[in-house]
Design a protein around this nucleic acid. Structure first.
Lengths: 184, 184, 184, 184
DNA sequence: TATGAATGAGGATTCATTCAT
DNA sequence: TATGAATGAATCCTCATTCAT
């Protein structure tokens, strides 16, 4: 008995975010998504060609939203180091909000997907422009090989802080800024 | 006609390490393990109650071995900072050798397992004693909350370097030491 | 906003003929038919109660058209044996033109359908009148049981020649006439 | 609750023959086979890598058995024409016994399978040697293009006689011999 | 104790059919 | 009347687990 479902993509998005949080990315099945959304399995396939497309899209959109917020920090006026701190706060906030989804970007199998290359590149560009500002303002110089690792690891560390030192947000963010000031 | 299998656990360990390296943790099946070891599937269940216990045991043993090697570094004579560098080199080496196995510790589901708590604690203790030596030798002081995060993240970062910046071992190790000298 | 679709049945017929030719009878889906015709799936169900009715109707109409052409051969003036040859040429031509559709008559499930009984009967009558002419002209006599089998098998053989000895039309038609002259 | 199933391949063979007879080759599913045999789906996959392998093997074995019986006819002493008649009787008998299975060889999709090439070739060779004997004994000469078609069509026609003129075995076989004597 | 055939729930995916719009 | 999104049973296939041998 077909009915028109409103906001179907949003519904799927929310359900998958929830399910990833609850069971982990690789443990969720199409049936689970169907039952969580209240949408028939077949309907999911009207919107996504297969399971992979569905799940990667959710992770992708989640990160895209986060990156938009991070970009906003960079676009503000202000002292570079101040911005770096704000950036880390926001990064923590984003990953914190999306808990289980965050870590998926670090799993190797998702790297292959073109969509995630875009996410990686965008994230890198945002961080890079921040480093550039710092170089100019503070007369520093960051080697390429070093910079690329630093960027990646701030994401990695933030994900880990969120996942493992739960309910210690204050301490976590303070730690992030502290190591940032030492490393950058 | 039952036969006696010698060194069953060692055989299983070797086979699973090999299989994880070749196919990745989540792609290996009981059948694969059986065929790789030459032991019947049913027999595997005489030694491990289920697949999870088998695989987590292998990961556990693999890390236990690594930790023994790391402990050996600490037990040597030498300047603390020198030891820190050796420790990081060895950590990189261990994770590098066991590639696929190392990263499993990053996956959230393994954290729950009691066995891994032991690994975490042992690792932490090793690192902690290193920090203590440094505090004494260099007159520094590391806050608990800070120290625990630093320790965890060196493991995390090393795993990531091994997995993502493949065949850049020299650059990776140099980076590890560099950030260690800034952070510790 | 409903629109009036002209010549719906013709459109469907053309599309399905095309699709059977391209993908084979059992590989076509209602969606494919909808997309090929530009008519919505739901609309197809206003004209045919289910998929089977739709497809069998198409096969039925295709054969009906063929039979009309074959009848035309019989209605011409001319020597009976000459007509027999023309009949076989035309039969080959018809099946050749409708390739995938022709063979469906060979599949047992379509035999059950009442529509195909009509096709069988009409075909039989056409062939029968040809045999009658030959009996009269050449002083032969064909037993009923024999005649009915002969008729059926010329269709069968023609379908097989078209499907299996592709691009050997000349040889195929020559063979048809040759065995006809021996058998009839 | 695993038990040892005896004659599993024979059981599967029988069930599939039955199911093809009842529902047709392309209508049978793995579930149907499982439920008809009383064997779990998974078990079927211990014996055949996939559905296609299972079903084609059944058809293949069925024909292989038939061909053995046909070869036996050829190997006997006797007048060639007498043997031709015996051959046709046996061909009718074989196809009659295996009803639904017979026709599968004529469906185009099975032609691709290597196993069926072997069947086709063997059948052709048997028939060919019969024709050779006839050529020698009766001073006839059969063109290659003609012979190949004749061979194929005797199988086709026999299948059709069995399927459509049910319970008219006497008439059917008489017809077969009659057209054989005219065509060969 | 060791074996591995047997199990069957569960995986992703398809598609004829329905019905609110 | 025409639409096409929604449905869900059914498809093939996998694999951790069991247990008769």
């Amino acid at each position: 008995m077909p009915k028109i479902i409103e906001n179907i993509e949003q519904k799927i998005f929310n359900a998958v975010v929830l399910l990833i949080r609850k069971h982990g990315y690789s443990a969720i099945s199409m049936r689970m998504i169907a039952s969580e959304t209240g949408i028939a399995v077949g309907t999911l396939y009207n919107y996504y060609s297969d399971k992979e497309e569905l799940t990667t899209t959710v992770v992708y959109l989640s990160w895209k939203e986060s990156l938009k917020n991070l970009q906003r920090i960079i676009d503000q006026e202000g002292a570079p180091r101040e911005k770096l701190h704000l950036f880390l706060e926001q990064l923590y906030e984003e990953i914190s909000q999306r808990r289980g989804i965050g870590s998926e970007l670090m799993k190797h199998d998702l790297y292959k997907d073109e969509k995630f290359l875009e996410i990686q590149v965008t994230y890198t560009n945002i961080f890079r422009s921040l480093l550039k500002e710092l170089e100019k303002a503070e007369g520093k110089l960051f080697e390429e090989a070093h910079a690329i690792r630093i960027q990646k690891h701030f994401m990695l560390i933030t994900i880990n802080l969120v996942n493992e030192f739960i309910e210690e947000d204050g301490e976590n963010v303070r730690y992030l800024k502290e190591i940032a000031d030492k490393l950058i």
